[in-house]
Simulated scan of single mutants.
Amino acid sequence: MAEPTKQTRRRGRRSTRVSQQLEAARKRNAEQLAKQRQQEEAVEAALAKFFDAGDQIAAADADCQRKVEPHEQAIAQLRTQRDELVAAQEAEQGLAALAMHEADRTVEQVGELLGLGEKATRRLIATGREARAKLEASQGEQGGGTPPSDPANDHRGRGADGSARGEDVVPSPDGAEAAPAGVQGWPAGAGGEEAAPAARPVPGAVSA
């Protein structure tokens, strides 16, 4: 058999200088990897601190809101009451300015009395007109219904016996209580029956 023609390559032996350079490079690489690991660990720790702090912030906000909410409601109520009072008093000021203006005082004179400029005085008078219109409308709504009937007035046109007043009354023969027109009243006889009138004597007749 023929011998193989390929010649086996022999690995060359490194020199001492190359070996030293390679060893130094490997050492630097290990140092870089160790530093990178330390940096990654620092990043991981920073991430944990960041999100832990965010959780604490959210808890603090929730606790603060829970404690402050009743006070905020009370403050809002106080401000609403303040606004209503201020609006009512500004309406009173407007009505006062309007009263002065309608008392033959010019806008300039009213403003001079109140220590206000012309624009503010006109605005105050307009506020007074609006307040008066609202007041008149409110009074109209309250008094616009039909007044309730007075039970005492229902019998104003009737007498003590319930009969309507104003009817013609004919006096009874004995001057007793009057009876209505067209009804001849006579004293009641025995048993409560009405007594018949006595018969008049006939002229020239002889009594038995």
Rank of each mutant, 00 (worst) to 15 (best):
G117T: 04
K134E: 14
R132H: 13
G94H: 01
E44W: 09
P151H: 13
G140A: 04
R26P: 00
E136G: 05
L33P: 01
R37Q: 15
A88N: 03
L85H: 11
Q77K: 15
E72P: 00
T16G: 09
R79L: 12
A91P: 05
Q21K: 10
G111L: 02
Q36P: 02
E72C: 07
V86P: 00
M100L: 15
E141A: 08
H101K: 04
D63E: 13
E44P: 02
L95Q: 09
E108T: 15
T106G: 15
E112F: 09
E44H: 11
V43G: 03
G143W: 05
A34P: 04
Q38D: 13
T127G: 14
R105Q: 12
Q109F: 04
G111N: 01
Q36H: 12
Q93W: 09
L47A: 09
G143A: 08
Q81S: 06
A97K: 01
A96T: 11
S149P: 06
T106A: 10
L33A: 12
A97G: 13
E40D: 07
Q20K: 09
H71D: 12
N29H: 12
A88K: 14
Q89S: 13
G145C: 01
D55T: 15
A96K: 09
A91D: 15
R82C: 02
E141C: 02
H71V: 11
